[in-house]
């Protein structure tokens, strides 16, 4: 099910667009025309996203989230609130989970970013991704990239062993569909494999 909901006509269009996305050009982001009365507001940075380094010219106002989504063509990371209140935008920066909506891309020159697109290894789901499928740890799937990035980071954090410890550690990721019990089950299954 590569392109659900798309008929032939839209599929052809999408295929063209998808090809473009694979090459990851800076989609539709022209140089901001800086006017004399406006402070210089774009900068060149290097981001290492999922192992691939890329030089980008970014608007200083662009969050890491918007840069990933709108400029780098990586829409797996989601915007649920844009104010650090839901966790849908969770990514790893230098190995730690953060809300990518509350940080500017220019603050991450040289940083290593991991997104949901970077977890699977050569098409093989990561243990956490596989556990989420196995335990039906999502419904609509929109908060899921953030949940999985949080759950994956959690494995490296000093989080206790009780269910309540895990629930607390996952409380920065809101799921309105209410997949929480299944998310808990998925994380527990991966943790038990780890230990």
């Amino acid at each position: 099910m590569d392109s659900p909901g798309w008929n032939r006509r839209s599929f052809l269009k999408a295929a063209a667009a998808a090809g473009a996305a694979a090459a990851m050009p800076d989609i539709a982001v022209p140089e901001p025309q800086v006017k004399p009365d406006v402070p210089a507001s774009s900068q060149s940075i290097r981001l290492k996203v999922n192992g691939t380094s890329r030089q980008l010219n970014v608007d200083t106002r662009a969050t890491l989230l918007d840069t990933l989504r709108e400029q780098m063509g990586m829409a797996g990371t989601k915007k649920g609130c844009d104010h650090g209140q839901c966790g849908a935008c969770t990514v790893h920066v230098n190995g730690r989970r953060i809300n990518s909506c509350l940080t500017f891309a220019v603050m991450h020159d040289g940083d290593e970013i991991t997104t949901i697109e970077g977890l699977a290894d050569a098409g093989q789901l990561s243990p956490m991704q596989a556990a989420f499928v196995e335990h039906d740890a999502f419904q609509c799937g929109y908060c899921t990239p953030g949940q999985i990035m949080s759950a994956t980071a959690l494995l490296r954090e000093p989080v206790g062993n009780t269910d309540d410890d895990l629930r607390e550690a996952m409380s920065g990721n809101i799921c309105r569909c209410g997949a929480y019990p299944n998310i808990l089950a998925a994380i527990k299954s991966v943790r038990s494999q780890h230990s």
């Binding site: 667009a17 998808a18 829409a75 997104t115 949901i116 697109e117 789901l125 499928v133």
Partner: peptide, 27 residues
């Protein structure tokens, strides 16, 4: 039965409305 769309959703490949890559899109 596991979700048919499960893999797309856990890998970030499921495309929601604002996710479709459209050339020359403006905001």
């Amino acid at each position: 039965t596991p979700r048919h769309d499960g893999t797309l959703k856990v890998t970030g490949q499921a495309r929601y409305a604002a996710d479709h890559p459209i050339r020359r899109v403006v905001h």
